[in-house]
């Protein structure tokens, strides 16, 4: 990993900690937007720009609006303290647990971007898709082929559910905000 990744990790960690510690909910929402920006850069750096695009649309756009609508409809307690009180023993205990688990799991993982890492899950099924996807569907990306071709009806159902959820959210907001 380069110095760029380390600087990015510092930024993401700092924004995550700030999001957890702020007492004022409006400040939390703003800092959470900064966290989302850092995550989008990280996804792009790890060569997953599609995930970064989703993070841009959901994290920076929709989540902020939904959280703002929520505190507009509910109470926003005013406080004179800037940060939440930290329960030190609990932080130490949970932190130690995370460090121990990471130290156990991390050496077992394959190197980032390794081309020799075996495909996990069921090898027969995965290998079948990797070998036959292009002949059967004509799509270069195997993941897109599974989403749009092999389980196309499932994806269609998901799209219907998301569409219905969007419509009902619009209806609910219409009644509550503009009335």
């Amino acid at each position: 990993m380069s110095a760029f990744a380390y600087a990015l990790a510092v930024f993401i960690l700092a924004s995550a900690v700030a999001t957890a510690l702020f007492r004022d909910v409006l400040s939390t929402i703003i800092v959470f937007g900064a966290y989302s920006l850092g995550m989008a850069i990280l996804y792009t750096f790890l060569l997953a720009p599609d995930v970064a695009m989703t993070e841009a649309a959901i994290g920076a756009g929709v989540t902020t609006l939904l959280l703002l609508l929520t505190i507009a409809r509910t109470a926003r307690p005013s406080t004179d303290r800037l940060f939440e009180r930290v329960d030190v023993p609990a932080v130490v205990a949970v932190g130690a647990l995370v460090v121990v688990l990471t130290a156990i799991v991390l050496p077992e993982m394959y190197e980032l971007g390794s081309t020799t890492a075996p495909v996990w899950s069921n090898e027969d099924v995965t290998q079948h898709y990797i070998e036959n996807t292009y002949e059967q569907t004509g799509i270069h990306n195997a993941v897109s082929a599974v989403l749009a071709a092999y389980r196309g009806f499932d994806t269609f159902g998901e799209a219907v559910v998301v569409f219905a959820a969007g419509i009902s959210t619009l209806l609910a907001l219409n009644r509550e905000v503009f009335a």
Partner: peptide, 21 residues
């Protein structure tokens, strides 16, 4: 493309929070 989407969405949060305050 990701940079473009961010450039488009960046103002959204600012406008929403400004209006909220």
């Amino acid at each position: 493309d990701v940079a473009l989407i961010y450039a488009l969405l960046n103002f959204l949060m600012s406008v929403a929070i400004s209006k909220f305050t």
